[in-house]
Amino acid sequence: METVSRHGEKAREILLDAAEELFARYGIDAVSNRKIAEHAGTANHSAIKYHFGSRQDLLEAMLQRAMDGMRRCRASLPSAAGGPEASLRELVTVQALPWVYSFDALGRPSWRAQFLYQARLHPELPSIVGDSLRAEVLDAAAQSQAIREFEGIPEVVVKSRALILGPMFLGLCAQYERTVNEGRQRGNWESVGYFLVDSMVGMLAAPSTAPADFMAFGDD
């Protein structure tokens, strides 16, 4: 029974890898379950249904795997400062770097950042990277008296800038992952991570010279 279980887990992992690559390269809606099974090297065209249940279950398993990888990297890092006394840079760093390190920990070629960049626009999937980055910024904005970088910046401006974080972060990570796959990269993933931290902090804390009242947030 244990051997069968290990075989099943291995088969699931191969299917997840195949789906991640195909979704990253061609887009989620452009790839059928049958194509995923074929790319995974199985003759069973119902493999996705057998191992995951539905296509939505497959996608959710892919997001969960990405989250698990990020959490493992976060757990391996030294404890970061947090709480009401944390600076904006500390808040952004503790959210961003574990994602970057999780991409770096993958084998080559890798497709996860590119898949997550595609998944962020899927109507039935949460934007797990963008949501986590935005939540930290908005939590900090709610405690803006402790975040000196937000002094003098209207709340609606902070919220508007926070919406940009996910696409900005994933866009550069996806682009860098492609260059790594093609052997054209410069620098390394860590340098990408700190560049992104610098960029996001700079964008969030930049002086406000125009209102952002064109953004609608409802009750958010």
Rank of each mutant, 00 (worst) to 15 (best):
T3H: 14
Y194I: 07
G83R: 11
I128A: 08
Y26G: 03
P109G: 03
D213T: 13
G27H: 07
M203T: 06
Q185R: 06
S54C: 06
Q175V: 03
W111N: 06
V158Y: 07
A61M: 07
E9G: 07
L138A: 01
A66N: 10
D139K: 05
I128Y: 01
Y117N: 14
D131E: 11
R74I: 00
A61S: 15
D17H: 15
P123Q: 06
F217V: 06
V4T: 15
R178T: 11
L204I: 03
D213S: 12
H45I: 09
H122F: 06
V4W: 11
L172P: 00
Q185F: 00
A11S: 15
K49E: 13
S79W: 01
L116T: 07
F52C: 10
V201K: 04
G130F: 00
M70W: 12
N44I: 00
R55G: 04
D104Q: 14
F217R: 06
L163G: 11
G218T: 09
Q143Y: 05
T93W: 02
R6C: 04
L58F: 04
A81M: 05
G27R: 02
G8C: 07
R89F: 03
D131M: 03
K35A: 13
I36N: 05
N44L: 00
A66R: 09
P84R: 14
T42P: 05
V192Y: 11
K159A: 13
M168D: 08
R186T: 15
A30M: 08
G166E: 04
I28G: 06
R112K: 12
R108Y: 03
E124Q: 14
H45R: 14
G202M: 04
D68P: 01
P123L: 08
A37E: 13
T3Y: 13
K35T: 04
T3Q: 15
G53Y: 05
